[in-house]
Design a protein around this nucleic acid. Structure first.
Lengths: 123, 123
DNA sequence: TATGTATTTAAGCAAATACTTAAATACATT
DNA sequence: AATGTATTTAAGTATTTGCTTAAATACATA
């Protein structure tokens, strides 16, 4: 890791900057994983899909398309992103695929959804 | 609000779908605000900026550019996004602008940052 | 006032996003 | 086997994103 300080301010605290760099470097993997999760949740449609799965347990693409008032392929492509990130899994019943949140991912989304309530109160 | 069900599956639970639509409709504003927050945090650079501000209290664009090893204008443009969302504010000291998290926004980010630790353990 | 430093803003561009429509796949039923 | 339904995948496209470089702004100091 290159630890080069270019800031020329007299007040610049080089030790602080180097410390920050090392911290980030050590946590790089965690940041990548969290960024991935947040970028998936940071979309109106996908956040609603995640919320609906949390609330309803499981839903199929067709239901989600109805609820979200959008085309089935559009929903399906969002579902794929969420699935590729390992956040949901599917269960087949005949022609219908039911998607649900993976139990090991619910904790972080629960804390995110809690903030919805928080926002409702402050807004 | 148009409540139209197009799903033709025999098993489709229309009451459930209508209920979901109403819930989403009532929470539309909260979803928008939360999506905005998450889309801002769902970027590697911005998540790190937010984390660094949380950890260090305040930092200037120049410091952040050093720590993140990227150009000052690139950092500045990320800062602007975060600032436009009302998440941070600036304090001027001479030529230097110090940015810090707004206190009313720290709660949600704290819960997000906590999940970094969670991820470190599970990964 | 002139020069330098910190920061922002603007213009330009490559890559990523998120939709649309059309085609492919998987299962069910006749 | 043939047709229909649920879903995914692919191709095409308009929009957004995130950088780069260059120019503008704000403050400090000689």
């Amino acid at each position: 890791m290159k630890l080069e300080i270019t800031c020329t301010r007299a007040e610049a605290n080089h030790k602080q900057l180097l410390n920050c760099m090392e911290k980030l470097h050590k946590m790089e993997g965690s940041f990548q994983k969290l960024t991935k999760l947040l970028s998936i949740a940071g979309n109106d449609v996908r956040l609603k899909i995640l919320y609906l799965l949390e609330e309803e347990g499981e839903l199929c693409p067709c239901d989600l398309a109805d609820i979200l008032k959008m085309s089935v392929p559009a929903v399906s492509q969002h579902i794929r992103k969420i699935k590729d990130a390992g956040i949901i899994t599917s269960r087949r019943d005949g022609q219908t695929l039911y998607y649900s949140l993976n139990s090991d991912e619910t904790e972080i989304f629960n804390s995110i959804f809690k903030s919805i309530e928080l926002i409702r109160k402050t807004a």
